[in-house]
Design a binder for these strands. Structure first.
Lengths: 162, 162
DNA sequence: TATTGTTATACTCTATAACTATA
DNA sequence: TATAGTTATAGAGTATAACAATA
């Protein structure tokens, strides 16, 4: 008596897909773990959401800029950026000013308290990154960097094909 | 006239944190991009949620198992697993049976249609993975694998310290 | 007509915890 | 008392789109 096909034939080709070896799965699991640890710092200890933390970091890096520039630099969409800027403004970490050239633009400026907050968080999250990389030699780190750049480029291409 | 501290002193040590070079940020952005592309397949084309897709893949790999084993293998919590199993059952992709030994256990068994669905999805997502890795030599791929294993281990350690 | 930024809505995820049935 | 699994709930995040002000 023949069994139903699901049980009779273990697929040959598709056994190549093992979650534990499947790169997209591994990347997601790894990124989730790492970002949870980071979120533990800026979230639980300093009461920021992820978009808020990204906007804060972007502002320190870029100086006073428009919301559009922040969004581009932090891989956030404009709604998340808008809400994150709102949140940071309510907490007193930044202020907005009208742009000189285009009055649709609001230039977003970090307050001193915002810079202080960043100065507290940055060393802590950098320490987490250092811990992750501690096991690697200088050479391995630059190899990792190079391989990740390759994957980033390739993922970009893949997404644009869609 | 002294400016407020946020503007007067660009922090020296913390300029080391550039989002574009910050490993946790890069991992999250990369994983998001990749998983969006994969989700485009199992989600938009085959109408599965991410947890459903993971349960499906786990079931093919593990054979008939309990929900707990699926959860462990697919990095899902028991609630997500339960809901994903429900969803797949409603769509007719699997069925449940009572375990012989412990009647709290429900053994989850893939239906032929579930295996067929997997057989359609697996080659497509494997093709995406292949595209991502295409630029790398065999050697580079095994280096990437090794470096990722290191990071995975380290991230695990980091999470357990918390 | 296009662009910057905001808001509304609905939908999905997640996290906590309460609950059941077994053991 | 502990475990496998389910369900309820609330909070956060996300995506689509409509909207206002400006260009």
């Amino acid at each position: 008596m023949p069994k139903p096909s699901a049980e009779k034939s273990a697929p040959k080709k598709h056994t190549a897909l093992h979650l534990q070896n499947f790169l997209p799965y591994r990347l997601v699991v790894l990124a989730d773990q790492v970002s949870h640890c980071i979120a533990h710092i800026y979230g639980d200890r300093f009461n920021l959401t992820r978009p808020e933390w990204r906007v804060l970091a972007a502002l320190v890096e870029l100086g006073p800029v428009s919301a559009t520039e922040i969004a581009a630099h932090s891989t956030l969409d404009k709604m998340s950026t808008s809400r994150a800027v709102n949140g940071l403004e309510e907490k007193g970490y930044l202020r907005r000013a009208d742009a000189a050239d285009d009055r649709r633009n609001k230039i977003i400026i970090l307050n001193p308290t915002g810079q202080e907050l960043y100065n507290k968080i940055a060393p802590l999250v950098l320490a987490q990154e250092a811990y992750l990389l501690e096991i690697f030699s200088k050479e391995e780190r630059s190899t990792l960097d190079r391989l990740l750049r390759g994957l980033e480029q390739r993922a970009q291409d893949l997404q644009e094909q869609k």
